[in-house]
């Protein structure tokens, strides 16, 4: 049976992106996976033949600690970002159009400055002789010998700072479509403000929250610059190890092994979201769409 005109059009339209994705994404990913099973040579390249040497190295007892830290830092950054951005998105969606545009602009403004510069700015902010440290010591909140920099907490703070806009924007997009009359209806039926928020607003913006979760959690897992700049030796993440294997040890198979592991780790939350989305794909349209 010949494909219909419509199918033909669909094929034509999707071919470029399909080719792009397979050549520049799928193939390199597979190459990285394959490199895990190649031996390293002493000049930073790949030796001949195949080996399981790298997998043995990955069993190194240092890795579980780093992997665990990567996961909990990413999870914490995601959770904090979501908790901060849901009320923020709610507020932006309910603001007057003028204020709304201003707030959205402010959300995006940090992207106008180079990412590295912003991270270094945090280094200055948290510096032992920095303004923030002195202010906190003067206020008696922290002891003078506390270090704000070079620890996992600093990494967490800067990660939240970096990824917060990626959480605000999708949640805002969902909140903007939300019918706020539903909150009135919930309160009319006896729900308190908080109950209405929890039982009606949160389910209403569920898709935005799922997207935000992915947008924060996945880049967080691959963080490398942030722990490198504001973190210390005890706040290394898996991204740092990969960089170290490439640039310092010049051991590509080893770096590939870690990368492959990270890729597989990222696929897990993706699969979870995919299943959840699928289960709720019958999600009804908004009130306005129906009326």
């Amino acid at each position: 049976m010949a494909p219909s005109r419509r199918t033909l059009h669909e094929i034509l339209v999707t071919t470029p992106s399909f080719v792009w994705l397979s050549v520049l994404f799928c193939v390199p990913t597979l190459i990285v996976f394959a490199m895990t099973f190649k031996p390293a040579d002493m000049y930073g390249g790949l030796g001949p033949g195949w080996t399981l040497e790298t997998l043995r190295h990955l069993a190194n007892p240092n890795y579980p600690a780093i992997i665990w830290r990567t996961i909990w830092l990413s999870a914490a950054a995601t959770l904090i970002s979501l908790v901060l951005s849901i009320p923020m998105a709610y507020y932006i969606a309910r603001a007057t159009p003028g204020l709304r545009n201003a707030l959205l602009l402010l959300t995006i403004v940090p992207f106008w400055t180079n990412f590295l510069i912003r991270i270094f700015a945090w280094k200055i902010l948290l510096h032992p002789e920095g303004f923030l440290k002195r202010a906190l010591v003067a206020a008696g909140i922290i002891a003078p010998d506390t270090s704000l920099l070079y620890n996992p907490e600093a990494v967490l703070v800067v990660m939240v700072y970096t990824y917060l806009p990626f959480a605000i924007l999708p949640i805002y997009a969902a909140a903007e479509k939300f019918d706020f009359h539903l909150l009135e209806a919930a309160m009319d039926l006896g729900a308190s403000r908080l109950t209405a928020f929890r039982k009606v607003f949160l389910p209403g913006i569920r898709r935005g929250i799922l997207t935000a979760f992915l947008m924060v959690f996945i880049p967080s897992l691959g963080s490398y610059v942030i722990p490198d700049v504001v973190g210390g030796p005890n706040s290394e993440m898996i991204g740092n190890k990969i960089a170290q294997r490439v640039f310092v040890d010049r051991n590509l198979p080893h770096a590939s092994g870690l990368s492959a592991f990270l890729t597989l780790a990222v696929l897990v939350p993706l699969a979870v979201v995919w299943v959840v989305q699928k289960r709720t794909s019958g999600q009804p349209p908004t009130m306005q769409e129906v009326a």
Binding site: D179, H181, L182, E184, A185, A186, D188, L189, V200, P203, G204, R206, Q283, P284, P285, T286, M287, Q288, A291
Partner: peptide, 14 residues
């Protein structure tokens, strides 16, 4: 002790 029928019904879509 009052309840409202809203113009667009405002049924909870989820």
């Amino acid at each position: 002790q009052v309840n409202t029928i809203f113009q667009n019904y405002a049924l909870f879509p989820h």
